[in-house]
Design a protein around this nucleic acid. Structure first.
Lengths: 203, 203
DNA sequence: TTTCGACTAAAAAAGTATTTTAGTCGAAAA
DNA sequence: TTTTCGACTAAAATACTTTTTTAGTCGAAA
């Protein structure tokens, strides 16, 4: 790797970080390319040297967030060999991820919340999650913790319920951003759900 | 009860039915008092003889829907004495209710979806449901089916999960109205959830 | 007691003018 | 050659204005 490539990566990373900050602050629709350029102290036109359009930049930010989360879980998968323990880790890490940097989840009331790019990113995230949970469940089966069966279907179901708990919690709070306390309560409910789920597939 | 009271009730019922039909068709915001009057073949002004405002009429429609559902469940409670069986009945009846006549659930994209009256009605429904589910769970405890504990909390949790499943299902369908098939899949997920829940509190 | 035509005030909708913003391009730094 | 940016445009968002629709009233009539 040459020096110039390193510098390129650094520059790109700075842009992504600035964009992430602004998108998290204002949402996709209300963040302008100028906002991001200003944050970086550079001209707006320069951004277009790195990204062809605003949506591509947003996509890159979200993809980075998603990858960090998934990699994080994958590390745990390598170092833990209990399906039950992994599910516990998973649900808690997931919560931290949503609480801290999930730019997608902040788009609830963004006018672009159901734009093609956002839908695609949400769908992709769900697929990645389903894959990871399926892997965890299969580890549990291999270790003799869980009964055998269609783990793909069970993973989908668990994720659906977790997504639902988040949505229902937000709705009950009149669609406002969840407070620290709300997140804590949601975490408790999620853990209860996972416990219940584990019990239902446990040998 | 006199003849005239009967006639009054009949008239009121007709208005409620017409209003229910129109609200289900267009939602709260897009249904005009004229639409409802036209449906009844009467003048708009006459409606104001029975209801002081549009919101009061809507409230009456939703309250009627809610009462029908709750009464329906209460009948089953009187004729069944197994908590497990009652939960199964409950989840299925609930689905039928949402599928057929839940005017509140059709307001997702209504501009008045978060108006005070709608919020109040949703909150009231949740409280009524929580009460009913708590009663069911307590029957289960009394019959020795379920372990003892805070049944109020457990009822809240179960309802939260059920609400969540519905919301998550709708969201995955890009916030469109659920088809018959979608409802069937949702019902399956709800039943699975209740089974899981029962297993987790079973003696 | 119940119905409704005629009315008003307020809100929604449609239409228009103005401003902002995404994205381009060519020239100039680096 | 790679990167930056000022100046520009077309399109979209916003602000503003006018027109239409609608909730709700009232007095008269059935």
């Amino acid at each position: 790797m040459t020096d110039s490539t390193l510098k390129d990566d650094d520059k790109l990373n700075n842009i992504l970080k600035a964009a992430q900050k602004k998108f998290a602050q204002f949402g996709l629709a209300k963040t302008t390319m100028n906002d991001i350029a200003l944050e970086l102290g550079m001209g707006k036109a320069s951004l277009y040297y790195y990204f062809t359009c605003k949506e591509q930049l947003f996509e890159a930010v979200v993809l980075k967030e998603q990858e960090e989360f998934i990699e994080n879980i994958n590390k745990s998968i390598k170092s833990t060999d209990s399906g039950i323990a992994l599910l516990e880790v998973y649900v808690k890490r997931r919560q931290v991820h949503f609480e801290n940097c999930h730019n997608l989840s902040k788009l609830k009331y963004d006018s672009l919340a159901s734009s093609p790019i956002v839908c695609k990113l949400l769908g992709d995230f769900y697929k990645k999650e389903a894959e990871v949970v399926k892997t965890i469940l299969e580890i549990g089966v291999a270790k003799g913790e869980f009964v055998e069966g269609d783990m793909s279907e069970k993973a989908d179901f668990l994720i659906l319920v977790m997504q639902g708990l988040r949505l229902a919690t937000i709705k009950r709070k009149n669609d406002t951003i969840l407070s620290k306390q709300d997140h804590a309560v949601l975490t408790k409910h999620l853990v209860t759900t996972v416990d219940m789920f584990v019990k239902s597939i446990q040998k």
